[in-house]
């Protein structure tokens, strides 16, 4: 047990935690915007898969990471538009249409993968960029400043998201649309427009989240490679109480628990009969997150379609 609390192990857990948190962070921040505007998009995982495939496909063929990323964002935008159309214009039950979007993304990414690539081959993805000076800091440098660009951008987006939500006129419209759309509407704010924007933004971010797996962390594509990561991102939005910082804390906590369980096994710290409990930890945490999520701050109009004059 003592071996667990050695410095290398703790630093390893922190490093892996930061790295693993990246796809969650992109997906959950995007989903947070959608939910703050009043739309639950359960299709995040499907968008991620499409983003992951698109980025991987482009990079395999062109070798350009930037083009791959752009492609993932574009496909995320398109799927976001589809979700917006279904949930805003057609006023569909969002839980169901989100699952539909997920299945669509899952099926289409598998089909395209088979048709267009057939087999997978590792690519050269984003490389780690040590940040000058900061990466030389003892301990901290190793944990925080020796990642690839996608990791830095993900964490940089947290304060940006908080700023947009709390300090801009757009953020004010988003918050109002999610809490009391009829009030926003009565002041001439286009609730549909705000929701379109947020769901599409969430789609773009989910596309990036998928790309961060296929051309950032893993550098390979496989069918259903997210294996439900997008759903955990949705849970993290609840866990994080719909705030960017809360979402980040949740993503870090979740990925550190994951990193922790891997280290426990690598270091062979617990007897193997207890291992199953350690493997269970992340899933227990997900459930805890959903049960004890700070409901009080839930956008009050979450998942309710809005149309003028109905209240």
């Amino acid at each position: 047990m003592n071996e667990l609390f050695t410095l290398p192990v703790l630093l390893g857990v922190l490093y892996s935690g930061v790295r693993l948190a990246t796809p969650y962070l992109y997906a959950a921040l995007g989903e947070m915007f959608a939910q703050r505007s009043g739309v639950v998009n359960l299709g995040v995982d499907g968008i991620m898969l499409m983003g992951a495939f698109t980025a991987f496909f482009i990079v395999t063929n062109t070798g350009s990471l930037a083009l791959g990323m752009l492609g993932a964002m574009l496909i995320g935008l398109l799927m976001g538009l589809l979700m917006s159309f279904v949930s805003v214009n057609l006023r569909a039950v969002q839980g169901i249409s989100g699952i539909g979007l997920y299945l669509f993304g899952l099926g289409l990414s598998s089909l395209l993968f088979k048709r267009l690539l057939g087999s997978t081959k590792a690519i050269d993805g984003f490389q780690a960029i040590p940040i000058p000076f900061l990466s030389d800091l003892p301990y901290v440098g190793d944990v925080f400043f020796k990642h690839n660009a996608l990791v830095y951008v993900a964490f940089a987006l947290v304060p940006v998201a908080a700023f947009v939500l709390n300090r801009t006129t757009l953020g004010l419209k988003i918050r109002a649309a999610g809490m009391k759309p009829e009030a926003a509407d009565s002041l001439g704010v286009s609730v549909a427009g705000v929701r379109y924007f947020c769901v599409c933004l969430g789609g773009v971010m989910a596309g990036v989240a998928g790309a961060s797996l296929s051309i950032g962390l893993i550098n390979l594509f496989q069918e259903n490679m997210t294996s439900g990561l997008g759903f955990i991102a949705v849970a993290l939005v609840y866990f994080g109480g719909w705030t960017p910082v809360g979402v980040m804390v949740g993503a870090l906590l979740f990925s550190m628990v994951n990193a922790f369980q891997l280290w426990v096994q690598v270091k062979d710290i617990l007897p193997s009969s207890y291992r199953d409990f350690v493997v269970m930890l992340p899933y227990v945490l997900t459930i805890v997150a959903l049960v004890f999520g700070r409901r009080a701050r839930q956008p009050t109009a979450l998942s309710k379609p809005f149309s003028r004059g109905e209240n």
């Binding site: 797996l213 962390l217 259903n224 490679m225 294996s227 990561l229 994951n258 990193a259 891997l262």
Partner: peptide, 8 residues
């Protein structure tokens, strides 16, 4: 099937 956990 969890590819990203396997990567981790």
């Amino acid at each position: 099937s969890d590819v990203s956990l396997m990567a981790a």
